[in-house]
Design a protein around this nucleic acid. Structure first.
Lengths: 344, 344
DNA sequence: TTGTAAGCGTTATCAT
DNA sequence: ATGATAACGCTTACAA
């Protein structure tokens, strides 16, 4: 039922090799022979078997993508960017989804290796503690590019936001524009770059303005809404005199959780407490005090990561790059600014 | 650099076959031999080569997914549902993206065939005119399941919304609850089921209530925002006396386009003209007259489609099913109902 | 319990 | 320009 090169060859009474050459548009086939082969192949409904081809060429023209989650808007948009580039360059995409689970991520990577992908794009799961897996991949010569959530210093390229700079920028906004002095940070996991960088940028801006950062104001908030709520509650449990006037959340879900905690105490945003966050999403403008955020150019991150990976696959040079994409401040009401709602 | 079964066998001075058996947890391997093999394999960093395995077993444990677009919320959510099931059942996902382009869809399918996927899940591109491709796939014995945008009568299963019923329900709401009589429909392409079914449900409800449907009130609006705007303009260009009092849009983007046209003429929603749409999305609740919609259980559609496909792959029975998922009315202000904004 | 031989569909290499 | 042969890494079928 499935037509093979061999069958075409038999039908035409020529060698499989000639058929293969014709089908692959090689030079050295007589014009008439080629035409006859192409026609017959079409008539017989021939489809090349990439599995067999890959086995001999040791190339699958496939890249694996591992994302931690796919429900929110950021990763689908990144995937769209990746998909666009891979399509242009003739690659396919195997999509794996770690659900923020380190174990599942390990098995996803193993599967991709077994599928002999030409390279891997990965944004690591929140719970990952052991980076040796990535290190091993790189050491074994795999093409690996991180995006958004990167691991530094293991020799893999990385496409990410300029998080330190963005954190500085949004902190500066709170300080210079609004004259807030008591600023807290709901921070992400130390282990992943967004957690560390956003904290660093925040601290750097505070220091630059000679503002004191109370130790209680740096609270672990993970990356999820429930954790954001818990972390914010901790801040609000402080004696009034030690509470912050403004809060910077590591991402939007954490901010939404924090907002819940604030509302439950009957406090107003931004009058009683201001809040801003990284990672813009549509819900940020929807809520009653629209959230000032740092908007991430997700599509662009996807494109750049895919481009970097494919160029590294095709050129075979191990040119490790740290590609930084600039984010944009989206000013809304939650920081204390006045605000014209955006339609659409 | 890449470890093979043969290399493990040589190192242990046994046959590759025994190694293969041990690695695949077959019964007939002595316990000590198996343990020794497993240990060595691990130490050497062995990864099975699924490409080679697939070539002989003729099974890739991979299914292909073709979606028309990935930017909006619906398809990512469907993909999540698909991903969840494929993960549970031990399958992988190759993701292809037609960009609503028939030609690109054809090439996506050809690629999936070449990659020897075990089955294909597809939601067809808007511009597809020729259904013989799908028919051929089915006739050749491919496992094919449509989701959301289905093609009927070619012997493939389909998971979709109960569009006729949903259309009836939302039309009934406009008629019974609001007493609108002059109702127009911004319709989708006839060729795809959502276009046809939503129109049919609308017409059926109108007929049941003895309401006349002016021919001018059925306007082709494609599936995109720009086309929705153009279509709505057509309605608004009618003499005042022949204009509809309420409009049902085939999907949310078309509704947003229509709303733009309405606003540009200085008309109010729902006071001057009411509008409702299929396919809820977060923007629907965001706009100034929050849109009454039919909410599609995308995740569930993804799950059911994947389950159906995998069961058909594994059971080898050609049990064609038309699986219908029920949608839910989300009442907001644009239909004329009063409305409490949802936070979150 | 273990081994041998053949073959999956394709392409690389060397020959003609 | 075309063909013969071997090989990619694995598993099936059969033999020992």
């Amino acid at each position: 039922m499935k037509v093979t090169i061999k069958e075409i060859a038999e039908k035409l009474d020529i060698s499989p090799m000639t058929v293969s050459r014709a089908l692959n548009n090689r030079e050295n086939v007589k014009k008439e022979t080629r035409e006859m082969i192409l026609e017959t192949a079409k008539k017989m409904g021939y489809r090349p078997n990439y599995i067999a081809r890959s086995l001999v060429t040791n190339k699958t023209n496939t890249i694996g993508v591992v994302v931690p989650e796919i429900s929110h808007s950021f990763f689908p948009e990144v995937i769209r960017g990746i998909e666009e580039v891979t399509y242009e360059k003739g690659y396919n995409l195997i999509l794996m989804h770690s659900s923020e689970d380190a174990q599942r991520e390990v098995s996803a990577i193993a599967t991709l290796e077994s599928k002999q992908v030409d390279g891997i794009l990965i944004s690591i799961a929140e719970t990952v503690e052991d980076f040796s897996i990535y290190k091993n991949l790189v050491d074994e010569g795999y093409h690996l590019v991180f995006f958004d959530r990167c691991v530094k210093g293991i020799g893999a390229s990385c496409v990410r936001l300029n998080d330190i700079e963005s954190a500085r920028k949004i902190t500066q906004h709170l300080i210079k524009k609004h004259r807030y002095k008591r600023i807290a940070h709901l921070k992400g996991p130390d282990k992943i770059s967004i957690g560390k960088d956003r904290l660093d940028g925040f601290l750097s801006a505070m220091k630059e303005n000679n503002l004191k950062v109370n130790k209680d104001w740096i609270v672990d908030a993970g990356l999820k809404e429930s954790e954001g709520k818990r972390a914010m509650s901790k801040l609000l449990d402080l004696p009034k005199s030690r509470q912050p006037r403004a809060v910077i959340a590591v991402n939007a879900p954490v901010a939404f959780g924090a907002i819940e905690a604030i509302k439950e105490r009957g406090l107003r945003i931004p009058e009683d407490i201001a809040i801003v966050a990284f990672s813009d999403n549509i819900r940020a403008q929807l809520i009653s005090s629209p959230l000032t955020t740092v908007r991430q150019p997700a599509y662009e991150i996807g494109r750049k990561a895919a481009e970097k990976l494919i160029s590294s696959i095709e050129s075979e040079v191990a040119d490790v790059e740290d590609i930084v994409v600039n984010a944009e401040l989206v000013i809304r009401r939650s920081c204390g600014c006045t605000y014209e709602p955006e339609e659409k």
